[in-house]
């Protein structure tokens, strides 16, 4: 059994005005110029490569880091690479108030954790969530904590399908497991 507890340092995707950037689309996450790439390990270097102020993200982040993003993260195209580039960087989880519908599916199918939190904007405005803080989240229950600021966080728990897919490592593993059962 994988532990549903994830811990990591956070990156808060703030824009010029110090607010969470909303509607980040898949061309800002993984530009269409690189869609010919099919190797996971080559994808990380392009993550957020077209998002103003964040183009140097791949060089700064490390395995297990957690991304905090604005609402409708991953709007736009259906490209799997926009999820896989974060898998390539070994990002731990992405948390946002909401996600683009296809983006969310793609993440679920990849077994990559994405979770919703409706309170992010308030938490950031109150200074309770800043880049560099370390947080812990239980993806099963949605309970979390900012370990640095000793503040509780509440996320929307994963639904059954999403959790099952995460647990087995994605849709393909799930399909094979279904066959065995």
């Amino acid at each position: 059994m994988k532990s549903p507890i994830l811990m990591g340092k956070i990156w808060v995707l703030l824009g010029e005005k110090g607010r969470l950037i909303e509607d980040i689309d898949t061309d800002q996450i993984f530009h269409n110029a690189f869609l010919h790439i099919t190797e996971l390990r080559q994808m990380g270097q392009y993550a957020l490569g077209n998002l103003g102020g964040w183009k140097d993200f791949p060089g700064k982040t490390g395995p297990g880091d957690i991304i905090i993003a604005g609402r409708n993260f991953g709007a736009g195209s259906s490209r799997q690479q926009a999820v896989d580039c974060f898998k390539s960087l070994q990002t731990g989880i992405i948390i946002a108030p909401s996600f683009g519908a296809i983006y969310f599916r793609n993440a679920v199918n990849s077994g990559f954790p994405v979770m919703k939190c409706s309170k992010l904007v308030d938490l950031i405005a109150s200074g309770l969530l800043k880049t560099g803080d370390e947080i812990r989240v239980n993806i099963r229950t949605g309970e979390g904590q900012n370990l640095y600021r000793k503040e509780a966080l509440f996320l929307e728990p994963m639904n059954e399908v999403q959790y099952n897919l995460w647990e087995v490592g994605g849709l393909f593993s799930y399909a094979k497991k279904m066959k065995q059962d």
Binding site: S78, N106, F172
Partner: peptide, 28 residues
């Protein structure tokens, strides 16, 4: 693998854009 697959709504069809993991699974 087209996020504008929902244009098929124009002819009353449920079209859904998906990533390559979903589509691989759908092929199989």
């Amino acid at each position: 693998t087209d996020s504008h697959m929902n244009i098929l709504g124009a002819v009353g069809c449920f079209g859904q854009g998906m990533g390559d993991v979903d589509i691989t699974f759908a092929f199989k």
